[in-house]
Amino acid sequence: MIAAAPWRWARANLFNGPLNAVLTLFLGYLIVVLLPGLVDWTLIKASLTAPDDRACAAAGGACWAFIADWFRFLLFGRYPYAEQWRPAIVIAVFIALLLASWNRRLPGGWLAAIWIAGLALSGLLMWGGVLGMPYVETELWNGVPLTLILAAGGIGFGYPLALLTALGRRSSMPAVRTLSVIYIEVARGVPFIAWLFLSLIVLPLFLPPGVTVPKLWRAEIAFALFIAAYLAEVVRGGLQAIPRGQYEAAASLGLGYWRQMRLVVLPQALAITIPAQVNTFIGAFKDTTLISIIGLFDPLLDTNTALNDPAWRMAYAEGYIFVAAIYFVFCYFMSLYSRRLEKTLSRERR
C-alpha cells in the first residue's frame, strides 16, 4: 500500500475509537471550511501598502499596511525619530541577554552580573547625554524598550527584597514574620492596577513638596514591590523544600545565620525554584501592559494611540495581532526555557 506509515499514524492518532473519529471528521470539516478564508485574509488578499483601512477592506484582506505605516511608532513610541537606533540596540541587547540566559552552564553570579551590565548599558543608551548622544527624558521612553526595561528593572530591584521577605516569612522572630506576612498578603491580594494607581497618585502625596518622581520610576517602584511579593512566595517554597538537615549541618559546622543562608540554603532553594521563578517573570512581563492604563506608552498604548488615526480605525485586529506577536515571542521563549529546566531538574533529583 502506498504511504502505509501515514495511514497507520492516522489510524492510531486520529481515528482510534468512535468518539475520536467523529471529532476528527468534525474538526477536519471546520478546518477545511475556515482555513482557506483565514489564509486569504492573512496573506493572499492582505494589503501591505494602502492609504487607509477602507482601501484594505476593498481589497478584502488584512490591513498590514497599518503596521507598515505606523511601524516605528508602535515599536518606539514618541522617542525622537532620529535617535531611534538607540532603543533598537536596547532591544537587541535584551534579546542577547535572554539567549545567553538559555545556557544553563553559566553560574548564577555571572548571569546576574551580565544582566546588570545589560541594564546599565540600556539605561545609558536610552538616556544619552554622553558620547554625543542627545539626552532623552524618561517620559519619551516608549514602546518595546519601555516594557523590557520596566520588567527587567522591576525584577532586578524586587529580587533582593523578595529574598529578604522570604527569609523573614520563615523567621523565628514573630515581629519579622508578621511584617513579612502582612506585606506579602497585601501585595498579592490587591490587583496590580491598584498599586499602579497608588504609585501614580498617592506616591507624590507621600513626598515632601517640591520633590517629584518621574512617572517611569513610580511605575517601577510599584512593579518591584508587586513582583517581590510573588517572588518571595516562590522562594519560600524552595526554602521549605530544603530538608532540615541542611540547616542543621550548616549550623553544627559553626556557620552563623546569614552565612548559612548565603552559602548553603539559598543557593539550593533558588536552584530548585527556577521554573516557578521564570513563570513569575513571564507573568510580570505580561503585567507591564497595565501601564498603558496610567498613561505610560508601552506597545499597547502605542497601538491604541495609532488606532485613533481616522485612516486606520478599523485596523484594530491587525494592530493587536502585531503587538500580541511581540509578546508571544518573548513569553513563549521564556516558557520553553522554564519547561526544559523543569524536566532537567526533575531528572536530576531522582
Binding site: N13, L14, G17, L300, Y320, F328, C331
Partner: peptide
C-alpha cells in the same frame, strides 16, 4: 489529554497563545 492528535494539538495551540499574550490586550481585542 485526548488521544486524538487534532484535539490535543488544537487545545495546546489555544493554551499557548492565550497564556503567552497579555490579558489586557485580549480584552481590548
Amino acid at each position: 489529554l485526548s488521544g486524538n492528535w487534532l484535539v490535543s494539538r488544537l487545545s495546546l495551540a489555544y493554551v499557548e497563545i492565550i497564556r503567552n499574550t497579555p490579558l489586557l490586550l485580549q480584552i481590548y481585542l
